[in-house]
């Protein structure tokens, strides 16, 4: 890893009642790198995501993004710093169209909204913003669906909209929380392809929490295995998956 570290999480610990969800978990992501986080259900993957993203406050540990500590930073500020994320249970803006999702995200990322602009009828999107929306629509193959309310989309396209929304504002890190859950093989393949294209064209770094090992292997450079809130193993994908302990804890439980 010669590239400078983009995200460095050190000793993240989080306790819910009597349950130790995360026990001194450390994780780092280099700029442009794709890192996978796998582990059985309840291993603490989503909690780790929430701690990194600011939805949960870790009891211990620190998170540094791009050389800057973001420990006490609210979610929306982290987002503006350049962290985009998707959710395991989809969180779409019901009733809004696909294009609107991207536009909202773009404007929010730019932080250009002022109420007086709206009152002077100057609140509309700028050409540059619209252009970026179009670019991302194009990248995700959503142009045809741009005007559809998201409620009418199927799950696969819904996940793409979430991905697109996270891509607006040109983030440097994408956090994807089980993007393939609920998708069929065809949708997953498409997702993997689009994810690959996205990384090539934007150079964005990715943290991927995922159960689908095919998607993980197709996407990530490096892998962390979580089990009972601890990092069980980390390193290159092939060697981690070959680790007997990993096979017992993770693959064994699914077999």
């Amino acid at each position: 890893m010669t590239a400078p570290a983009l995200l460095v999480a050190t000793g993240i610990t989080k306790q819910f009642g009597g349950i130790l969800a995360l026990d001194h978990v450390s994780l780092d992501v280099a700029a442009g790198e794709a890192v996978g986080v796998v582990g059985p259900n309840g291993a603490g993957k989503t909690t780790l995501f929430n701690c990194l993203f600011g939805l949960d406050d870790p009891d211990e540990g620190s998170v540094v993004f791009d050389g800057q500590s973001i420990d006490r930073m609210p979610v929306w500020k982290r987002s503006r710093l350049g962290i985009g994320r998707t959710f395991q249970r989809m969180e779409l803006f019901e009733g809004m169209t696909v294009a609107d999702h991207l536009l909202v995200a773009e404007q929010a990322a730019n932080g250009t909204v002022r109420i007086w602009r709206d009152l002077l009828h100057r609140g509309g999107p700028t050409p540059a913003e619209l252009h970026h929306v179009e670019e991302v629509l194009d990248l995700l193959g959503l142009v045809e669906l741009a005007g559809r309310p998201v409620d009418t989309l199927d799950l696969g396209h819904g996940r793409l909209v979430e991905l697109g929304r996270a891509m607006m504002g040109k983030p440097r890190l994408l956090m994807l929380d089980e993007p393939s859950s609920g998708l069929d093989a065809e949708d997953t393949t498409r997702l993997a392809r689009i994810l690959g294209e996205t990384r090539r064209s934007t150079g964005v770094a990715v943290v991927l929490v995922e159960h689908d090992l095919a998607l993980v292997e197709a996407t990530v450079d490096r892998l962390y295995v979580l089990d009972f809130g601890k990092v069980l193993a980390s390193g290159g994908v092939a060697e981690v998956l070959a680790d007997p302990e990993v096979r017992r804890a993770y693959l064994g439980s699914t077999a």
């Binding site: 929306w76 985009g84 959710f87 803006f93 019901e94 909202v104 602009r117 709206d118 009828h121 609140g123």
Partner: peptide, 26 residues
Amino acid sequence: LVGDGTMGRYLSAVRGSELAANSVGI
């Protein structure tokens, strides 16, 4: 004007999902 403008768009986003609205930087 507020409804037609960016504020209106933000507000419907927040109504759709407060969590996601926060996560895109609102």
